[in-house]
């Protein structure tokens, strides 16, 4: 027990020496074989690529609607398909988001996309603003499911552009919301 504790106490100083420039000292997994300083996704904690400017994994880049240069649409195969190697035809499954949902506004990815403190305090809690809703098609991983219709919304609030996907929730039985398409 004492030996284990001594060994544990000796390991933190090398990581601090390895990363002197990062303000939040993260004791990430440092291995001699791997490259030092692996990134983790800021939303879900999964491992993110170093080239991603938004510091997020593929899933969170997709869900946030970022036009990430690194996580471009490709012939990516989910890990469950590679795990089930019994049938090779299942490797054709792909994560599909229709390319027609790309916005007209070409936003340049910025490394400092975080919101500053003064900007956050000035954000209104509730706002009614004109927005653009574009229909998009979200395809599930397995090809058995039909494509699902969603809407991509883009709005400008306090000089910032907010963008995201609105997913289908069901029929409005109680008529709680006014219909936007009838306006």
């Amino acid at each position: 027990m004492l030996g284990l504790r001594n060994i544990i106490l000796l390991s933190p100083p090398p990581t601090q020496i390895t990363r002197p420039s990062l303000p939040p000292v993260n004791f990430a997994a440092v291995e001699d074989n791997n490259t030092v300083g692996e990134k983790v996704c800021r939303d879900c904690g999964n491992r993110a690529k170093k080239e991603c400017l938004f510091e997020r994994c593929r899933t969170c880049c997709k869900s946030r609607g970022y036009n990430c240069v690194t996580h471009v649409k490709s012939t990516w195969i989910p890990s469950s398909a590679t795990r089930s190697s019994s049938s090779p035809s299942e490797r054709k499954k792909k994560l599909k988001i229709d390319k027609q949902s790309s916005p007209n506004v070409s936003l340049l990815p910025t490394t400092t996309s975080r919101q500053e403190r003064g900007f956050r305090e000035g954000l209104p809690g509730k706002i009614e603003a004109p927005a653009v809703f574009k229909r998009t098609r979200v395809t599930a991983i397995s090809n058995n499911e039909q494509a699902e219709i969603g809407y991509q919304a883009t709005v400008t609030i306090s000089g910032h552009i907010f963008k995201g996907f609105l997913h289908y929730y069901g029929v409005d039985h109680n008529k709680a919301f006014p219909c936007l398409s009838q306006k």
Binding site: L107, L108, A153, T154, G164, G170, F177
Partner: peptide, 11 residues
């Protein structure tokens, strides 16, 4: 039909 989602800050 009702659609719901989150809009994130793009800059």
């Amino acid at each position: 039909h009702v659609f719901k989602g989150f809009l994130y800050d793009q800059g």
